[in-house]
Design a protein around this nucleic acid. Structure first.
Length: 113
RNA sequence: UGGGUCGGCCAGACGGUCGCGUCGCCCGCGAGGGCGCCGAGGAACGUCCGGGCUCCGCAGAGCAUGGCGGUGGGUAACGCCCACCCGGGGUAACCCGCGAGAAAGUGCAACAGAGAGCAGACCGCCGUCCGCCUGCGCGGGCGGUAAGGGUGAAACGGUGGUGUAAGAGACCACCAGCGCCCGGUGUGAGCCGGGCGGCUGGGUAAACCUCGCCAGGAGCAAGGUCGGACAGGGGACAGUGAGGCUGCUCGCCGAGUCCCCGGGUUGACCGCUGGAGGGGCGUGGUGACGCGUCCCCGAGAUAGAUGGCCGUCCGCUGCCCUCGGGCAGUGACAGAACCCGGCGUAUCGGCCGGCCCAUUCC
């Protein structure tokens, strides 16, 4: 799981990444990637809206996305902010497909180290 | 053994691996790191009640408004819980009732029916008069009546008798209901028994209403500390009383208040978890619950930790089938956000116990 240092936690940061970052749509997620001028650790943020499911479902989706992000953390270029928005299909998506979507988006975002 | 009824409890298990959050200790100037403890629910849910807590400058009184409604207890309090009463259902265990007042007033009630709220007379029954007829009778007018028929959820007590032209609480007996009185019993709602009276005057109060009881307002985005940012302008009212805790009146306090346009911040910390807390034992009580004593500390996040992945077993479903396995899928409802007590709602499945009925055996 991701430590707090690897999380996007400010509302302003979320807005910045979603508006200015490049979008990579997947079957169950939309990934926004924005490179900052920094060599700080990469940061991940997650948006799971109510149309995904009830609170239990949303928690599970966000935790799986966090776990997938943690596995990709060491391979992500420093100074990158990534925000993943979960779509309603993410509730029933398999672990492998979620992780695959995220990997593809980061690769295409040229954010791999 | 089968069926029923009531109550309590659990909420997949184990392992591996990689992680997250608070707190404590240690290391480090610091960023941070290491170790250890703990880390979602019976409903955490809905936010429907009740409280604690916080602020509103907490004199207060009345009205309004809202809620509650058998009795007695429990509780911090309740619209909750317990016991009992009454009424209804069930062979029974047991369940159900939004359980005050309908002769204080106002309102409401489809269809059917002659008539539905100070009721009414369609068929019928009876008397009398007239007409027809040999006659039994038939038809009509007037009057009496409400026993019988019929309508309805409901038709102004029921049964039997006296009475009468036929009938009728018109009168009588018993029963039911209403009111009053007396005796016994229970803390009480009531219950049991006896007497008297007029002879009865439905439902709806989750319709207005009446009676009794309860209730200040807003809510942790409460409220406070620190830091940061910014830009003011206009209008209304104001010791002749602004404003002050939903509305009104009285009373009290007594100085700035409110609105619009524009601009800025939406950071950190406190509140924040040790409490009507949990467990054991004893004790009072039918019980809800109370009392005493010992032990324990058991979540505090803030884009929001409490988990991700893998394996074995377990349960369920489907298929195959050599009747014992194999394969595949799946794991109820649901996620703390100041904290408690309730209620309501959702829920795959499982465990335990009390009681009742039927049946079999001894």
């Amino acid at each position: 799981m991701l430590a707090k240092a690897n999380r996007v936690v400010r509302g302003a940061d979320y807005r910045l990444v979603v508006r200015r970052g490049r979008r990579y749509p997947g079957a169950n997620t939309i990934t926004h990637v924005l490179a900052r001028d920094s060599d700080a650790a990469p940061r991940f943020g997650f948006i799971v809206a109510k149309n995904v499911g009830n609170a239990v479902v949303r928690n599970r989706v966000r935790r799986r996305l966090k776990a997938a992000s943690w596995e990709l953390l060491s391979e992500t270029r420093p100074g990158t902010d990534i925000v993943v928005r979960a779509l309603p299909g993410a509730a029933s998506a398999s672990w492998a497909s979620l992780r695959g979507e995220l990997t593809t988006a980061i690769e295409r975002g040229a954010a791999l180290a």
